[in-house]
Design a protein around this nucleic acid. Sequence first.
DNA 1: TTATTATGGACACTACAGGTCCGCAATAAT
DNA 2: ATTATTGCGGACCTGTAGTGTCCATAATAA
Lengths: 165, 165
Amino acid sequence: MQFSKSTDYALHALVHLGHPERCNNVGIKELSSTLGVSESYLSKIMSKLRQDGIVRAVPGVNGGYELARLAEQITFLDVIQVIEGRQKMFECSNTKSQQHRLLAEEGSARRERDQDQERSGKSECMIEKVMEGAEQHLHQYLREHTIQSLLDEAFKRCNHGASKK
Amino acid sequence: MQFSKSTDYALHALVHLGHPERCNNVGIKELSSTLGVSESYLSKIMSKLRQDGIVRAVPGVNGGYELARLAEQITFLDVIQVIEGRQKMFECSNTKSQQHRLLAEEGSARRERDQDQERSGKSECMIEKVMEGAEQHLHQYLREHTIQSLLDEAFKRCNHGASKK
DNA sequence: TTATTATGGACACTACAGGTCCGCAATAAT
DNA sequence: ATTATTGCGGACCTGTAGTGTCCATAATAA
């Protein structure tokens, strides 16, 4: 249960691209040396980000990457979902097993046929339910944090530190 | 970024053990057939749960497993951490790279030496910071959900469905 | 036209989840 | 005490996803 290194690289790359004083394009060379990752690998990651409309890329001399939208419109969730994929964090491998029938029977006063859950649709796993709630919570948090909000925070800290001095 | 199947199995097994009408011990045979998993594999998982004090096990005839604490004292977080390990969800692979120095410089009015972050300790990655916040949020949610709370929920639903009928 | 830069396919390596098998140890019933 | 039963744990296997490299090709600006 860990985020991949690729996600780390992607986030760092985007933060770099989000720096306000940059002139338009940042080449893969600069990015890779800044992050300490090989060009070949990092370019794979940048391609993904481009395919999903997070960054724009232009080849040729003085080419490179730039953010495709405003930094405040790129959330952590966006980035993570591009790199990690959009599969659910948890899937009950156990649908329609004994387990769920037992859970459904209990408390139902032992009715003769338990077509009930069939009719009520889905017969969703309670565990899955809880885990989906967890995922939604997580997503909400990640939606509230953007590349821009991170930059703002960093900025604030530095100024604070400087003024304290 | 997905929870392993083992976590799924562990949670289902614990829900099974948490059923109120059970007499003390549930054998691996019953568990594995209920969940639809092989005995060999499931026993590995149960061992982990035992080593962490989630369940108790007794060998011999009529042996088996039972919860080592009350179902309301077994949180989803407990189970997940036993199975998935306790490593952080996100680690910045990038400490002390160019990236962080740049972030620190910006807004600090270009002071001559940036020993500042060295002195202020840690020089923690802002991205990591955000991700740690996300993890804490997630953990809080998972701490609030226990095996018992799930059983209660399932119970309530069944009764509701029955009375509606 | 040419040098530069991104793109994408093919391939290699590694780690780990997922799973099996088997011998050993502990226990309760007889 | 013996024996059948049940859990324990180590060794092993397999497939796949993450990580990473290399190279040929396409696109672009000077």
